[in-house]
């Protein structure tokens, strides 16, 4: 394939990765920003979203769009509910102590993963996309100084992949509007800024924590529902999103929404392009190297604010 179409295809693939990654990482970032909890179980909430999407789509039946639409609503809500329960029964009990929450979320990770293995099983199962048309993309070339269009072999995407990118954009704008324009967003920002003062002003911090933890998990689950018609639901699928989300959140700056989104686009696109031209392993190596460099030269992340 020539270089131009090649880069376009790689960018399109990268954009899908970036869209899903942005949603997942924003969930992780939100939880860390507001609660100061490093949620190691975040990837498992992602996986749970995909598995529940399969389960919902399977039990609804009928046209694939009906099952998918149901999954889009039910799976993130269910996962959020599970996360809220985990917050109230585990994290609250250990008083959100930074070290102990890491150990506790590792425990939650294994519980979710193994329970999924015991119930859903070790198989990868597909969810049918609501619509999926292959869209061939034309390219241009100059033959004897004249401009002409042609259709390169393999240069295509699908309507579903494009809609994943669009949906992720809409959700991200929604999250931003909620944080910036609503009362609950205000309460979250207040809690993030200073927990004690927020408490003194009568903000129900514990309830805010439960909501934020649920929302973070719900966003990861939503990302998984969007990707599951492209990939498949599998009990081990939470590993990669967790690693990439951490990379994105560290580069973007912990707790910074715009930084997270920008870093997700950067990592997603470079992952797509580097793995197309060189190898997927090199893409992961470079991303991890970037994390190391950010931690050395700009520990607060690209958009982070220095801690006082």
């Amino acid at each position: 394939m020539e270089i131009g179409p090649y880069i376009l295809l790689a960018s399109l693939e990268g954009a899908v990765t970036a869209a899903v990654l942005a949603l997942t990482a924003v969930g992780l970032s939100l939880v860390f920003g507001v609660m100061r909890v490093v949620n190691v179980a975040h990837g498992e909430f992602f996986m749970l979203g995909a598995v529940l999407a399969w389960w919902v789509a399977q039990s609804v039946g009928g046209h694939p769009a009906v099952g998918f639409a149901a999954a889009l609503v039910i799976a993130p809500l269910l996962v959020a509910a599970i996360a809220v329960v985990a917050d109230m029964t585990v994290l609250k009990r250990i008083e959100y102590d930074p070290e102990r929450t890491i150990v506790a979320t590792i425990g939650i990770l294994y519980i979710i993963q193994q329970v999924t293995l015991m119930t859903y099983g070790p198989d990868a199962r597909p969810v049918e996309p609501p619509f999926n048309t292959r869209l061939a993309i034309p390219w241009f070339e100059f033959v004897d100084g004249k401009f002409q269009m042609y259709w390169p072999w393999g240069l295509s995407t699908t309507s579903y992949k494009l809609s994943v990118i669009a949906a992720a954009g809409v959700v991200l704008v929604g999250v931003w509007l909620m944080m910036a324009r609503t009362k609950i967003g205000l309460l979250m920002r207040a809690t993030q800024l200073d927990r004690e003062t927020a408490l003194a002003f009568g903000i129900p911090v514990e309830r805010i924590y439960a909501i934020v933890f649920g929302m973070g998990a719900g966003l990861a689950a939503l990302a998984a529902v969007l990707i599951v018609p492209i990939q498949q639901a599998h009990y081990l699928m939470g590993g990669d999103p967790l690693l990439l989300s951490f990379i994105v959140v560290i580069i973007g700056g912990l707790g910074s929404l715009p930084g997270t989104v920008l870093a997700a686009i950067l990592i997603g696109l470079s992952d797509g392009i580097i793995s197309v031209f060189f190898s997927p392993t090199l893409a992961k190596i470079l991303a991890t190297l970037l994390v190391a460099l950010v931690l050395v030269f700009r520990p607060q992340g690209l958009f982070g604010v220095k801690t006082r």
């Binding site: 394939m1 179409p5 090649y6 295809l9 790689a10 693939e13 990765t17 393999g154 492209i230 990939q231 498949q232 699928m237 990669d240 797509g272 793995s275 197309v276 997927p280 392993t281």
Partner: peptide, 14 residues
């Protein structure tokens, strides 16, 4: 890699 989950990025090498 046998653990890979998305494949389109490999196909332009055909």
């Amino acid at each position: 890699p046998p653990t890979e989950t998305s494949f389109t990025k490999y196909f332009p090498k055909i």
